[in-house]
Design a protein around this nucleic acid. Sequence first.
DNA 1: TAAGAATTGTCCCAAATGAGACAAAAGGCG
DNA 2: CGCCTTTTGTCTCATTTGGGACAATTCTTA
Lengths: 192, 192
Amino acid sequence: MTQPGKNLRVKRTHKLLREALIELIEERGFDALTVGEISERAMVSRAAFYRNYQDKYDLVEQIFDEAMSNLLDAVADIRREHPPQVWVKFFEHIAEYDRLYRALLGRKGSPWFVMRMRASMAELIKKHGRIPNGPKSTDHPVAPFADEFLPDLVSTMFVEAITWWLEQGRTLHAQRGRHTLRLTCLCTFQGS
Amino acid sequence: MTQPGKNLRVKRTHKLLREALIELIEERGFDALTVGEISERAMVSRAAFYRNYQDKYDLVEQIFDEAMSNLLDAVADIRREHPPQVWVKFFEHIAEYDRLYRALLGRKGSPWFVMRMRASMAELIKKHGRIPNGPKSTDHPVAPFADEFLPDLVSTMFVEAITWWLEQGRTLHAQRGRHTLRLTCLCTFQGS
DNA sequence: TAAGAATTGTCCCAAATGAGACAAAAGGCG
DNA sequence: CGCCTTTTGTCTCATTTGGGACAATTCTTA
C-alpha cells in the first residue's frame, strides 16, 4: 500500500486520517464517529476525506487491508523455509498492530468490522493455510466440504481468540508481563 | 498565536513542523538538524518550510514565542488578584511545556537558544517582575542600576534553575513522584 | 409522528502545497 | 588550499487541499 509514486500530500492526508481514526475509536467507539469528527481531529478538510475515501468504513478497510497486506508478505517469506512458524508470525503481527486491532475488535470496535475481519481471515486461510492436523492426519478424515467450511469456522475462532487476547492483554497490562496465547488448532472432522 | 482566521493548512503545517522539530532535537540535538530533515519528518515539503519560516532558528523562536505568549496571558490574569503566585504559575508553565524546554535547554539543545531564552526572560521580568525582596525591603537598599542589571542576572539564574530542574526531572522521573523546585529569590544588593 | 438538527456526499474556486530545478553558500576531507 | 558533497534559499507550475454552499438523508426529541 501507499505506492511510492503517490504525492506526499496524499500520503500525509492518509496518515493523519488513520491516526485520528484510531485515536477516536479508542475514545468514543467506531460507531459513534462522524466523518466531520475524524477530519477535524486529523486537521484535514471533510472534502479531502471524501476525495480519498468513500466513508469511514472505507477508511477502516484500507487501514486493515494494508495491515493484512504486510502480514501476507511476511507470511510468504516464512512459508518458504519454516511453514509451521506461519502462525507464530501471525500473532506477532497482531502484537505489532496491537493498537489497531484493539481499537477495532475491542469494546469500542464494531460488529461490522468483526465480520469484515472474519472474511479476510477466511480468505487468508484458504490461500495460505494448511490447517494443522492432529497426531496423525489419517485418523480423522477431513470432510469433503472442508475447504469451503473450515476456513470460515477457523477464521471465526481466530478472531474470537484475538479479541479475547487483546482484551485480556489490556487487563493484564498493568502487571508488565509478556503474554502469550498458544493456540493448538485441532481442526479435523469426524466423517459419518 | 495561531490566529483563528488562519487557513487550516497553514496551522497544520506549523503543527507538524513543530512536532517534528521537538522530536528531532530529542533524537539528534538542535545544532545537527537541517531544514530538509525537519521537513521530511513532518511530511511537509522543504519549499513549504521556507514559505512559513526563515530558517530553523525562526521555527524555534516562534514555538518559544507562542509558549511565552501563553505564559504572559496567564501571568496577567493572576497578577490582578494574587501577585505572589506569579512565579508559581511560571513553573507550572515550565512543567506544561516540559518536552519543549527539555529539548531546547537540555544536553541536546543549543547555546543559541539558551541565550535567546535569557533575553526573553529578562524582558518578562522587566515588564512583569517585582523581584521579591528579603524580610524587609528597606534593610538592603536596591542598587541604582538595579532595573537595568538585575533582570539580566535573575533571568540567567532562572534559566539555569530551569535547566537543572528539567535535567533532574528526567533522572528522577522513574520514581514517579511530583517534583517541586521552591526557589526563594533574595535578589537585593548591598550598596557601598 | 412531525419538526428541527446534524450528517452525508458532492460541487466549485481560491489558496497552499509538492516536486523539482537552480545558483550560491557552507561543510567535509584529502 | 582545492575539490566534492551537502545544504540553503528561491523560484515556477501542476496538484491537492480548504472553505463554504448545497440538497438529500439520517438522527433527535418533543
